[in-house]
């Protein structure tokens, strides 16, 4: 039987264009609003076990949609519901502290991502191994290169098996060798997660792994279909 894992109903999301309090008050008084509509009338049901891709042009609302599912942007209208723990893979290393060591940052970032203490303690060695940082793990993070930070971020982020996994464009980080490894790791995560929603521009990958692909255009869902169909429609829209 198919269980619903993620369900968005009539979701609208607006961003304020105007932040001047006086103008906002005037607008409120005139019952007018200046806002930018990021998503409108999003209806979406994703079932447990599905791998769903999201494609669309830059600024079409892919990432925003993913963030609504993750609970970051509360919808202005409609509801966003999900069954189970959600983990969003985006912006690896958010909240890293330059002045703490790699090891401390691994724990910090893990807690920011919502891993609990027991999980972090038991997975810490595994995370450090995977990041391939060697003795750098006990050096302050300011001595790290961008790639090293990304590797540490990925190692932490990929240490858990969430019920719902959301991936925003992070598929591989680091140098050529680590890229392969990280890609493999993320695909391993995808395989183990209950439900996966993935935003990506690599259509080849989406065609390979996705059950369905959502095409987003100007804040609306244009189409939800088989990967090939959605990609075909994407190129038609592109013109």
């Amino acid at each position: 039987m198919t269980k619903t894992s993620i369900k968005l109903e009539n979701v609208d999301l607006h961003f304020p264009k105007q932040r001047n309090a006086l103008v906002m008050f005037y607008d409120w008084f005139r019952k007018r609003s200046r806002r930018f509509t990021a998503l409108s009338e999003i209806n979406l049901e994703i079932y447990q076990g599905e791998i769903v891709g999201i494609i669309g042009r830059n600024g079409s609302g892919k990432s925003t949609l993913l963030r609504v599912i993750a609970g970051i942007y509360p919808p202005d209208n409609g509801t966003a519901k999900a069954a189970g723990e959600i983990s969003l893979l985006a912006g690896l290393g958010t909240g890293f502290s330059q002045h703490q060591t790699g090891r401390e940052n691994a724990i910090l970032y893990g807690s920011i991502l919502g891993h609990d203490e027991k999980v972090m303690n038991s997975k810490l060695e595994e995370i450090i191994d995977f990041s391939e940082l060697g003795h750098f793990i006990d050096e302050p993070l300011r001595t790290y290169s961008a790639g090293m930070k990304a590797r540490l971020g990925l190692a932490v982020a990929s240490a858990i098996k969430p019920e719902i996994l959301l991936i925003d464009e992070v598929l591989s980080v680091g140098d050529v060798k680590f890229k392969e490894k990280s890609k493999k790791k993320i695909l391993g995560m995808v395989e183990n997660a209950g439900t996966v929603v993935i935003v990506s521009h690599s259509f080849g990958l989406l065609t390979d792994i996705c059950d369905r692909v959502i095409l987003v255009d100007r804040g609306r869902i244009e189409l939800i279909d088989e990967p090939q169909q959605a990609i075909k429609r994407y190129y038609e829209l592109e013109g």
Partner: peptide
């Protein structure tokens, strides 16, 4: 089936103070 829940649990204003303590306790590691 396990129920679908709102993706971000947010307190109603009335119970916000209690909810705040609960969330801090739940996220004490963070």
């Amino acid at each position: 089936e396990p129920p679908l829940q709102d993706v971000a649990k947010r307190a109603s204003s009335l119970f916000a103070p209690f909810w705040m303590f609960k969330e801090v306790f739940n996220h004490r590691f963070l």
